[in-house]
Design a protein around this nucleic acid. Structure first.
Length: 290
DNA sequence: GGTAGACCTGGACGC
DNA sequence: GCGTCCAGGTCTACC
């Protein structure tokens, strides 16, 4: 079956897919020229569906095998709209970016939307797995989690969804540590899953844009395994572009770009993009470092 | 509030 | 092939 979802213009699916490395992490899949995005997700009712997203005039077409109930279609539409930020508005940013040569491509290529997972829980886990490791390590850990704890599409064992908090909460820390290769991150991910699957922690509430950004940051920093870098990264994913995810790469790039190679710290990174105010994280993200 | 050391793994490097 | 060192953020204990 097919669904059509409208997108606020300008919109380019390939720009969302290329926005960061999530498209390389299971269960996402996309190849050059990044005009199609595949993903597997588990719906609230337990159905696991493999979807394929392609750009269509004015929006996105969602294709999947089989059929869904009206309720499932509605949930799927909401989740895809969230993942791609279909309703996001970048008018202010594009208007100001057009005068900055290092950001000139932003409006032209409709850049700004950052690819999200279907749930905040999934994005928090992924982000924790990007910390203190290499990108190849992150890919390995995410793949292991999906294969160990994710549920597959009925009749297609190769299409596996990212494990829900409920499934992951049943894991044991030693299996996560050894088989999942999560190392010291294992207890962080397990605690997150256990709290998320109970009434104790409602990560999905962070999608509400009525929450003050400082409150969102405070809640993120309260999670074990989430420090300043991970919180800033998650704030960007949640649509709050006022924080810069300062990691070793950011320090290096800002040092070369603005300080002639002199080593810099967090303050220098932030002051370099201060003039972009609540969009400074996005200005940093889209900056043409070449 | 700031800092040092531990956490864990893979990759680079030297032998 | 083996051992050593280092990079990558966050947590905890300590000052």
């Amino acid at each position: 079956m097919d669904l059509f979802l409208p997108a606020r213009q300008p919109f380019l699916l390939s720009s969302v897919i290329r926005s960061h490395g999530w498209c390389e992490l299971a269960p996402f899949n996309s190849q050059e020229p990044y005009d199609r995005l595949e993903y597997v997700l588990e719906l609230d009712g337990g159905s696991v569906v493999a979807i394929s997203l392609q750009e269509a005039p004015g929006g996105i077409s969602v294709t999947l095998d089989g059929s869904l109930t009206a309720e499932e279609q509605s949930e799927l539409a909401d989740k895809v709209a969230w993942m791609l930020g279909l309703d996001m508005d970048f008018t202010w940013f594009y208007e100001h970016a057009k005068d900055e040569p290092k950001l000139a491509s932003a409006a032209r290529q409709a850049r700004g939307r950052i690819l999200r997972s279907a749930t905040v829980f999934e994005d928090v886990v992924r982000t924790i797995l990007t910390t203190n490791t290499t990108w190849s390590g992150t890919k390995r850990m995410v793949k292991a989690l999906v294969e160990l704890y994710g549920r597959a599409v009925e009749g297609n064992a190769e299409k596996i969804a990212f494990p829900t908090a409920l499934h992951l909460a049943k894991a044991d820390v030693e299996t996560l540590r050894k088989d999942g290769k999560l190392g010291y991150r294992a207890p962080y991910v397990l605690e997150l899953a256990q709290r998320s699957s109970s009434e104790e922690l409602d990560l999905e509430a962070l999608k509400e844009n009525s929450l003050p950004v400082d409150e969102v940051r405070r809640r993120l920093l309260a999670l074990k395994g989430v420090g300043p870098y991970a919180a800033a990264n998650l704030l960007m994913l949640l649509g709050h572009y006022g924080a810069i995810p300062v990691d070793s790469w950011a320090l290096k790039m800002v040092s070369q770009e603005f300080y002639s190679g002199v080593p810099v710290g967090r303050k220098e990174v932030e002051s370099s993009f201060e003039r972009w105010g609540e969009w400074q994280g996005l200005a940093f993200w889209l900056w043409d470092w070449s």
